[in-house]
Design a protein around this nucleic acid. Structure first.
Length: 735
DNA sequence: ATGATGATATTTTTT
DNA sequence: ATATCATCAT
């Protein structure tokens, strides 16, 4: 299921590559832009380029910097490089932009004015931080949404803008935001915490402000390789341009048609301007696809051709054209799930492997119905996405204790756990601690200490003192312990464990399990060379912030894979279901405002379709329960953009798929409600039946109501949407 | 200080 | 449907 299966150890850098791949891999030592379509072996080319540089050009591993966007991709890349070189490549820098920036900052903390033991805030920490600060500054009533403030600040940073540089704005609201940004940054600096965007910005400034340091790295990293180049945002691009300078040899690989992260700052334009910024750039196109059938590629090509702004590429294959793309029109989301489930059963019956099947959807909420049906059919599945290990509340709580035990002045940590588990220090008291801290510009810790001596009522004072003492004793108790013993000590003595053990629900059990798993993670923690000079606990905490912990405790069972189309990027599956293909859902309603939003949705659809190797299904529902109410929509326009001759419409089964009653399942009530809506057939009509109306045109029957002469029917018309008609007068023609 | 109740707003995700 | 958040009563 990982892309690029052809990668076998070839021994030589150029073996088993097609001519275009070879051209890219062995391009002269000048800047190279590889435009690589889906499934054309782009990561493979990047890896072989590194091997080629080292084996053919005698490049030292020391001179190579390879950058990716996710930790998973970085790990995979390192493994594949080691595989192809046949030796461990510890000297090679392979990492994410953030990981590399972090490493630079740990080395050069003095040059960028950070404390040696600076802490990293993940976006959740950042949000809490902003909320707290907003409160502190009395912005409570101004209807500022903390999330919007966060995205504003991050956006500024991603665009390489400091508050000082942007303060002069005409718009007063904007000026206020910038002012807040300024205070936010000051507060971060004082607390010695760094958010994700700040990692990149500081690393950028490290170089832009210190020519001699920049020169050192420019000399060292002669070869700079970037994967998924279309996902770079402004700061990342400027950073790599700085490093490349005049002498560096960047090798970037990307696909403008697979750019789906504009909403988080990625700029496709970097692909377009690359050859302007780097003279003598050689552009290589990889258009031969090794993944999908001709039909799937033809559909994907036709679809993406509707986008105006693209560099242009056409995927081709010398393989078979394969089966048509099958389109199923369900009449509601349950029918859709049942259809998919039954097709997966068929796949299994024919000896297919479950992990070769993927259900792809636009938004996470859509997974639920499929889970229900798959559970019922006893088909194991795995849902990707959702909370990762280190993002779970109980884990973050435990880590906050550790952080506080390590640095008393870590306000973010203190704020998080001062009353977790509840120990009688309520919001009011915490507010007073904040006030005091603010008034005397001191940390929350010191403020709490001072107020506990003089200023709180006896009961609160006692509670606060007990808390302070708890942290102090933790601090001294964990000194000198092994990392996993430190973690173990904290989860017990913080009473977090006992607190969650009281919760006998599944949720509570999972939390207890997670806390134990945290001890395990600490036991198995290997700082790697990036952080080997740091104290283990500091390294562990940085690791926890930077790596959210994908794949923690993953059970390797043969499972159907369920995920959003976003997270499917880079993966491939023999059998793919793209579900919820409805206008409003996909393309998503909120992207329909402007053309560029729609184009990004189309690229997402392109990404989804090109995941499929052999068989692609697209399904949509006439009626869908969304946010608790029913909505009705038309098939996605993207289906219409695929030539008819590539599609095969699957007629709804004659039996109306009414959920079967299953004894012992909890949601019988729900089901009864759904089924009890009315008959599923009525005098020549059935649910899902296409009908023609004199005035409204074509539509689909979604419901029946009433009896005899009052019998009514709900029809979703293509032109006017939902209508309820009295059968006796409607004069519907069955199609 | 805390648990219950009602209003609100619901893409996509990595670091 | 559901999760999160503010407000209110205990």
């Amino acid at each position: 299921m990982i892309a690029d299966q052809q990668s076998r150890n070839s021994g030589a850098a150029l073996a088993e590559l097609n001519p275009q791949q070879q051209e890219a891999v062995s391009a002269p030592l000048d800047p190279v832009l590889v435009l690589a379509g889906a499934g054309s072996g782009k990561t493979r080319v990047l890896i072989h380029r590194i091997a080629w540089l080292m084996l053919e050009k005698g490049a030292s591993p020391y001179s190579v910097l390879a950058v990716t966007f996710t930790n998973k991709a970085a790990a995979e890349m390192r493994a594949r490089i080691e595989h192809i070189l046949g030796m461990p490549s510890t000297r090679l820098w392979v990492g994410t932009f953030h990981g590399i920036a972090h490493r630079l900052l740990r080395t050069h903390w003095q040059d960028v004015g950070l404390p040696q033991a600076f802490q990293i805030m993940d976006s959740d920490d950042q949000l809490r931080f902003i909320k707290r600060l907003l409160k502190n500054l009395g912005y409570e009533d101004s209807n500022w949404d903390p999330k919007e403030v966060r995205s504003y600040i991050n956006h500024q940073k991603n665009e390489v803008r400091r508050p000082t540089g942007t303060l002069q704005s005409e718009d007063p609201a904007r000026r206020q935001l910038n002012e807040f940004y300024r205070v936010y940054q000051e507060t971060c600096d004082r607390a010695g915490v760094v958010d994700f965007a700040e990692l990149l910005l500081r690393a950028y400034e490290l170089w832009s402000d210190n020519p001699e340091i920049l020169a050192h790295y420019q000399q060292r990293f002669k070869y700079l390789l970037v994967d998924e180049f279309q996902d770079t945002n402004t700061i990342q691009y400027r950073w790599m341009r700085l490093l490349a300078g005049q002498q560096g040899i960047p090798f970037v690989v990307g696909d403008d048609d697979q750019s789906i992260y504009r909403w988080r700052g990625a700029r496709i334009e970097h692909i377009y301007r690359f050859e302007k910024d780097f003279p003598r750039t050689r552009i290589v196109r990889l258009e031969q696809n090794y993944r999908s059938t001709g039909t799937i590629l033809a559909a994907a090509n036709a679809l993406i051709a509707n986008n105006q702004s693209r560099m242009g590429k056409n995927l081709w294959t010398d393989g078979k054209s394969g089966a048509p793309i099958r389109v199923y029109s369900a009449y509601n989301e349950r029918d859709e799930a049942e259809f998919v489930t039954s097709r997966i059963r068929d796949w299994e019956a024919q000896g297919g492997v479950r992990s070769e099947v993927a259900i792809l959807y636009r938004s996470n909420a859509q997974s639920r119905v499929f889970e229900e049906y798959l559970i019922n059919a006893r088909i194991p599945y795995r849902v990707y996405g959702g909370l990762r290990f280190f993002e779970r509340a109980e884990i973050k709580d435990a880590l906050a204790y550790l952080r506080l035990a390590l640095h008393r002045d870590d306000d973010t940590a203190l704020d998080r756990i001062i009353n977790v588990p509840t120990r009688g220090i309520g919001a009011k008291s915490v507010d007073r601690i904040r006030e005091h801290a603010k008034a005397h510009s001191m940390s929350l810790w010191r403020a709490a200490a001072e107020l506990s001596k003089n200023g709180f009522a006896a009961r609160t004072a006692n509670a606060v003192r007990a808390f302070l003492e708890l942290i102090r004793s933790m601090g001294s108790a964990i000194e000198g312990l092994e990392l996993h013993e430190q973690v173990d000590h904290v989860i017990y003595n913080s009473t977090l464990l006992a607190h969650y053990e009281k919760d006998v629900t599944e949720k509570g059990e999972a939390r207890v399990e997670n806390l134990h798993e945290l001890v395990n993670a600490a036991r198995g923690f290997d700082p790697g060379e990036m952080e080997e000079d740091l104290p283990p606990l500091v390294a562990f905490l940085a690791h926890a912030s930077l790596e959210s912990g994908e794949g923690q405790g993953a059970v390797w069972e043969d499972c159907v894979q369920m995920m959003t189309m976003h997270s499917a990027k880079g993966l491939e599956f023999p059998l793919v279901f793209m579900v919820g293909m409805e206008d409003g859902l996909f393309p998503h309603q909120r992207s329909l405002q402007d053309a560029s939003g729609l184009e990004e949705e189309r690229r997402l659809c392109y990404v989804g379709a090109t995941r499929a190797m052999q068989q692609l299904y697209m399904t949509h529902a006439e009626q869908r329960r969304l946010h608790g109410t029913d909505s009705y929509s038309q098939p996605s326009r993207f289906i219409g953009e695929i030539p008819d001759e590539l599609l095969e419409e699957i007629r709804p089964q004659i039996h109306v798929s009414r959920p079967v009653y299953r004894p012992g399942q909890g949601s019988a009530g729900k089901r009864a409600k759904a089924a009890g809506f009315g008959a599923t057939q009525q005098a020549g009509y059935r649910l899902g039946q296409r009908v023609q109306h004199g005035k409204f045109g074509e539509g689909v029957i979604l419901n029946f109501a009433g009896q005899g002469a009052q019998a009514r029917v709900q029809v979703n018309f293509e032109s006017v949407g939902m209508k309820e008609l009295v059968l006796a007068y409607a004069n519907l023609e069955v199609l």
